[in-house]
């Protein structure tokens, strides 16, 4: 009987212990769950902050950095609607920025191209004007003509500008102009503008009297 009583006691104890331990395990889980939710919420908050930073940035981040951070956020697959909205806004902002940057790059490359052309045109004119023989000048003319769509493209020379109205000399062609430089042995004009065709050849050039 005593033995049975002991058993019963052990069982009860075990039961109590079990139930105690069970209730302890259950609260740990809850804590863990709470912790995870809060971290997620923090992540969402961080994502929102990051997204707002991307959207409102005034130049502290470059475009690559913004794209990297946006992609990182996208890979989290947040289900938060606000985050989703912000991602869409950031996407839009980056699209605008990317377009701007592309335009800038294009402009710079065009500028660079213009600069290269500008220099090549001037070099061509100066080489012809400073040639010390007719045959040398003729070689320079042939070389210079490669920049142009043809020898017949128009050359306009501005002689004066007043109230936005340009006064020109009689228009000539590039071939005649290069031959003119060969004869007068002097080039004293500046390049005002020129136009290129799809093959990168000059189709019209405007010079200005210095």
């Amino acid at each position: 009987m005593k033995k049975n009583l002991f058993r019963v006691g052990v069982i009860i104890f075990s039961f109590i212990m079990f139930s105690l331990s069970f209730s302890g395990c259950k609260s740990k889980q809850k804590i863990a769950q709470d912790q995870s939710e809060s971290a997620y919420a923090q992540k969402i908050e961080q994502a929102k902050r990051d997204l707002l930073a991307i959207i409102n940035d005034q130049g502290s981040m470059n475009l690559d950095e913004k794209e990297y951070r946006l992609n990182a956020i996208k890979q989290e697959y947040f289900q938060d609607q606000e985050v989703k909205d912000l991602i869409a806004r950031a996407d839009d902002a980056l699209t605008v920025l990317r377009d701007e940057q592309d335009a800038k790059t294009r402009e710079e490359s065009e500028k660079q191209q213009q600069y290269v052309f500008h220099k090549s045109i001037l070099d061509g004119f100066n080489a012809v004007a400073s040639a010390n023989s007719f045959s040398q000048a003729n070689l320079h003319i042939a070389q210079a003509l490669k920049l142009y769509a043809s020898g017949d493209i128009p050359v306009l020379i501005i002689i004066s500008q007043e109230n936005g109205v340009k006064d020109y000399d009689r228009p000539t062609t590039i071939k005649k102009y290069l031959e003119y430089l060969k004869d007068v042995k002097k080039f004293d004009k500046g390049i005002e503008s020129f136009m290129l065709d799809n093959n990168g050849k000059i189709t019209e050039i405007e010079l200005i009297k210095k």
Binding site: P154, L156, D167, Y168, D169, P171, E204
Partner: peptide, 10 residues
């Protein structure tokens, strides 16, 4: 010239 009207002194 090239669709533009050019005024010049001949």
């Amino acid at each position: 010239i090239g669709g533009k009207l050019i005024g010049f002194w001949d």
